[in-house]
Design a protein around this nucleic acid. Structure first.
Length: 141
DNA sequence: GCCAACGTTGGC
DNA sequence: GCCAACGTTGGC
């Protein structure tokens, strides 16, 4: 089981909306590094959901319901048998008891090399196993 | 294939 | 609102 971090601008799609709608297709990713990360997502993986913009905090946890599959809106685009524009379906698990801000994460030396800190524009990334527990402890997820 | 110009994201 | 840090595009 891999934990990912997905960023979203809450004005465009919020974790609250995911809680209300119970399921979402995570699409609209265009950046290649983010697509490569998303392509590796498998059913049973989990997702820390991060709000960008005014919030800048990890706000909730979701589960990955499907393996990465080709975006139905971009059919036929494949690369080595794998979807070039992968999407996954996710469902909310729960909101964070204590959302953890980017400032907190940046201030914590354990997260020094985390892509969230080092590559501010990356919107999908795996959470390194060593950082998964600390992040869940801080968020209560 | 290189790289200058331009566009975008997201933190500040 | 600005701009750093990217990514993308297109001329050559």
């Amino acid at each position: 089981m891999v934990t990912f971090l997905f960023k979203t601008e809450p004005g465009a799609y919020s974790f609250e909306r995911l809680l209300a709608e119970k399921r979402a297709v995570w699409d609209g990713i265009t950046n290649n590094a983010a697509l490569a990360a998303l392509r590796a997502a498998r059913k049973g993986d989990e997702v820390l959901v991060y709000h960008t913009g005014d919030v800048k905090a990890i706000v909730g946890l979701a589960s990955v319901l499907t393996n990465a599959y080709p975006d139905p809106n971009h059919p036929g685009l494949t690369e080595g048998g794998l979807p070039r524009t992968p999407v996954v379906d996710i469902a909310p698990i729960r909101a964070a008891r204590s959302p953890v801000s980017l400032a907190q994460i940046k201030a914590d030396r354990r997260f020094r090399d985390f892509a969230l800190v080092k590559q501010s524009r990356l919107s999908v990334m795996p959470v390194p196993p060593a950082l998964d527990k600390p992040l869940r402890q801080l968020t209560g997820l």
